[in-house]
Design a protein around this nucleic acid. Structure first.
Lengths: 206, 206, 206, 206
DNA sequence: TATGAATGAGTCTTCATTCAT
DNA sequence: TATGAATGAAGACTCATTCAT
């Protein structure tokens, strides 16, 4: 029993790894099956087609993806700048614990936009809502002289850039960064702090 | 003669387009040949294998890729902060005129890191050299009280994140950003200014 | 108990429908099982293989098939021509109430003749017996000047051709025949009458 | 050169044999390729898909099929009954020289009607035209007391039934018919004569 | 009996690559 | 140089069949 439940699961997890690293085109159903320790036919038994398996991987990650994009802004009650700090930090942490997700997401979803209309609609709605809420706060805070004014969308893009890009570039950066990356945990801590600092200074009234 | 040179060239250019958009795995040699208006066999006549053709595309772009990564730091003679501004700006412009390059490059390297050892060696050397040069300047400037101290590599990563990520995410951001992206040129100008502003503020002594 | 019997039966009936419409190669055991509302494995539990299931369908229909081929000649006691009329008519009716059978049967035999040796033996014996009986009658009747002489096998082939072919071609004929087929019952009546008329005239002494 | 031209042709001919005997579902592209003495990939090189190869086989035979259906009726100047005799005879001959065609035609085309709309349209038009022309002749001749009246479509169906069915049933009839089929040529002659006789008698004024 | 899970063998198809001309 | 033809290797997918429970 236990085994059979996990077989379907195993395939999904193997697929995730394979798709995350190699993308849809580069992934091989045979290789996914081998990774999962099941026969090739089994994969088709459970998921019918490569396409559908891929969609299941997307489904499984879609809420994470959305969280990845938006958890950084606009939640509850704390002074605006404090709240922003926390948001950036937790956003960074989400990405850090799913480091392949940004690459996969940008790569696959961008190269096959037609497939993600639904998700995009969702994101679009959430995005606009959050942006307008945050913009109101920014307008207020800046009128009160607490922060420098900025377009909420620009702010968002800066945060996401700073938080996501290092993970996308990580495999590449490793060789260039010397000892900075020797201890990865410590690097991530520093990087998170740096991102927060950068954004805070961007908003600080001078 | 003229013709033959340009035929080889045509294939390379078609390959570039195809590889940039679809990646190595998604690209089809037949499709590249068709795009170039040559027979499929011709492509192999000139470039032997898909792999080699791909490498030629990389070669052709490698200096651009390096520029994309590094032109952001340390060149001419000007006060440090002014020079940095110019560097960020011109780096942004390079990326802007090759908007598909970052995505392609990061994408392919992640899925086949073994292929880029040579290039990575090159980059590693340049990187370390530049970082140490810039670090010296930063140390000096900060000692003189002109700027806030920062690890040159962190600074570099911030700049590259801010300058590259928007292009990687552009096709995706379109739906979320509303009217901000209606006029793309104007958006890019704003974004460039924002990135410079963000970095300047990060370094500004308070 | 009742249930189990009928489950086996259900499968057989579904198989019949599927095989009749799609043929052996086009039929899918999964689809037959679904049609019958049983699990796929159940089908194999009862009938072992697709091949054996197919044979059971043939077995179930073999007497009908034979009737379809042979009921057209020689049975009860009536004057020869009257008897023939009745035979042709009832033969036509049998076919009419199993319109898919001729097509299926001829079709499968042509593509896999080796499978029907047994049945063919049976048919061969019956056929020869009937032909010789009928031939004797024909010889007699023609000697008495009641009918035109004909080889019994030729007569048989004419009858079967006229009675079977319309059903084989029916789905195809629909488009060509215009209003003739608008009312199918009435068409079948006309066709039956026509076939009888054609055979009667063939035998009529002039 | 000669060879290459014939390779494409060879595949088509092998496909025809395979499709004629086994139908679309039963046919195997590997088997067709083997039959033609080419690699399996070659088949796809020339014909892309099994479906398209099948269509080419249909195309190749479609005019023959139409001839098979209609050459029997309504051509030029000869007394009506003589002309009819000739038509039946030549129709029989066409079928005799393509004995697998009727089976294939009825089997495949009937089981996938959606694919043959175009052909059906063609046939429909030809059919209706011919039927009405022939009907006029029949009406005339019967008014003049030369023949028994009959619906042209019924006449057509009788002819086609008599001429086609023996070929469809041939593999099946072989065992039952005894010595009648020992000499196939002679049987076909007899059968043709019988069909003509049957139709002539059907029309003969008594 | 009944079934969900599992699988091997095969089927169509694609594609990079090679070869004869 | 140039090309149409040819091919092997691999890929996704299907399906009848079996098996443990």
């Amino acid at each position: 029993m236990q085994d059979k439940v996990s077989k379907e699961q195993l395939i999904l997890e193997s697929a995730e790894q394979e798709f995350f690293i190699k993308g849809f085109d580069g992934a091989r159903t045979t290789s996914i099956a081998k990774r999962a320790g099941v026969t090739h036919a089994m994969l088709h038994y459970y998921y019918r087609t490569k396409e559908q398996l891929f969609e299941r991987v997307i489904d499984k990650n879609v809420s994470l993806i959305i969280a990845t994009m938006f958890s950084s802004l606009g939640k509850a009650d704390m002074p605006f700048l404090d709240r922003l700090k926390v948001s950036i930090s937790s956003h960074f942490d989400i990405v850090a614990s799913n480091p392949l997700l940004p690459h996969f997401f940008l790569n696959e979803i961008i190269s096959r936009p037609e497939r993600y209309n639904m998700m995009q609609n969702k994101l679009e709605t959430s995005a606009k809502e959050i942006f307008s809420k945050v913009q109101i706060e920014i307008d207020e805070q800046s009128k009160q002289g607490n922060i420098e004014w900025i377009d909420a969308r620009m702010l968002f893009m800066s945060i996401v850039s700073l938080n996501l890009f290092p993970f996308i570039a990580l495999p590449f950066a490793k060789r260039m960064m010397g000892d900075l990356l020797d201890n990865q945990d410590s690097f991530l801590e520093q990087r998170k702090a740096e991102n927060i600092e950068t954004i805070m200074r961007r908003l600080k009234k001078q």
